[in-house]
Simulated assay, not measured.
Amino acid sequence: MSTTTRRSTGAKHSGARRRTPAPPTGGRGPGRDHQLELLRQMLLIRRFEERCVEFYSSAKIRGFVHLYIGEEAVAVGVGQALRGDDAVVSTYREHGHALARGVPAGAVMAEMFGKATGCSHGRGGSMHLFDAGRRFYGGNAIVAGGLPLAAGLALADRMRGTERVTCCFFGDGAYAEGEFHETANLAALWQLPLLLVCENNLYAMGTSLAREHAQTNLAMRAASYGMPAWTVDGMDVLAVEATARKAADSVRAGGGPHFLEARTYRFRAHSMYDPDRYREKDEIARWKARDPLAGLEERMRAEGGLDDLASKRLEEDVSAEIDASVRAAEAAPYEPVSDLLRFVTSPSGGAP
């Protein structure tokens, strides 16, 4: 699949020069081993989510579940641009973000099952994954709720004088919330080391982008806050990686906040509760034809970097990892009732 990246320069595309260069659009691509790792990460997310469908259907996973199937290239591509000491703030559709960040599949699966060995000790479930050790500051059930938190993390790093980047994922629905505009304004005003990644999957729950936004070029609107704003094909993991690296490097070097609009698509409904009656089947089929996993696999096969044997081994490796996570989650205990008041602040301000 071809790399399609475009930088927005403002509402009227005046051609005025900006100090930050445009993202890369060509050049020599990454080697076989790196592409294989990208494919493995996306495959792990895809197969993990598919197993979650099974367990939700059998009531082993309860509550709301928002699947990342179709959007894997965004989390994996952006993840390549981040360092271990960078921070990541996510949304409620965060399984893929957590796995791409390196949160073990076993810890995520245990959390899905509500077990004490989960990354949030079974208290968060699908929508509230958290891993402070990996600076993964969690999913957030409030639309756009993670944006002000990300600004705070970035401000703290700026005040400490570190070279860390805070990456905040959010959807096109969150773009319509006041928190986005407040965060974007303050981030640009204070030149915060913040990478804003909008996963534009065209729908805020069941509301299409065109019915929610008068101007659907989200990168162009973000540029009006005085920050570099780029659009990238969110179904092409190599394009996402190249653009995210350029943006993260610039942020880390003191270039202030950057905005990345990844145009992607979720193949499944908004959540497992959603009957998905607001999209045409033809539209879904068109986007599935651009499956990010199939696109990278086809490219690797064309370049001689992947054959049937390697593909089979990859599937077996991922399947074994997920199977192990399921066994561990099923065997893990629930948090004891005696811990019910742990981590709960009392009205007097003290902690039990």
Rank of each mutant, 00 (worst) to 15 (best):
K281D: 15
M272T: 14
T207F: 10
A244M: 02
G146W: 00
A222I: 06
C167M: 08
E261R: 05
G206C: 12
T264D: 07
W190M: 12
F180Y: 13
A184L: 02
E163F: 08
A214K: 12
S271Y: 03
L149Y: 10
A151P: 03
K281M: 11
T231M: 13
W190A: 11
G256N: 02
A239F: 06
Y203F: 14
A229K: 09
D249A: 15
A176W: 02
D249G: 13
A239W: 06
E280W: 12
R158C: 04
D233C: 02
E179T: 13
L238Q: 14
R279A: 04
A151M: 10
L196I: 01
D282A: 15
T243M: 08
T183H: 00
D249K: 13
A154K: 02
R211M: 12
V165K: 12
L202A: 14
D236I: 00
F180N: 00
L189H: 11
M227C: 08
Y273S: 15
M205A: 14
G171V: 01
L260M: 06
E177F: 03
F169M: 06
V197G: 02
A204H: 02
V197P: 01
Y175W: 15
G161K: 08
N200C: 08
M235W: 07
L195N: 06
G206A: 10
E182C: 10
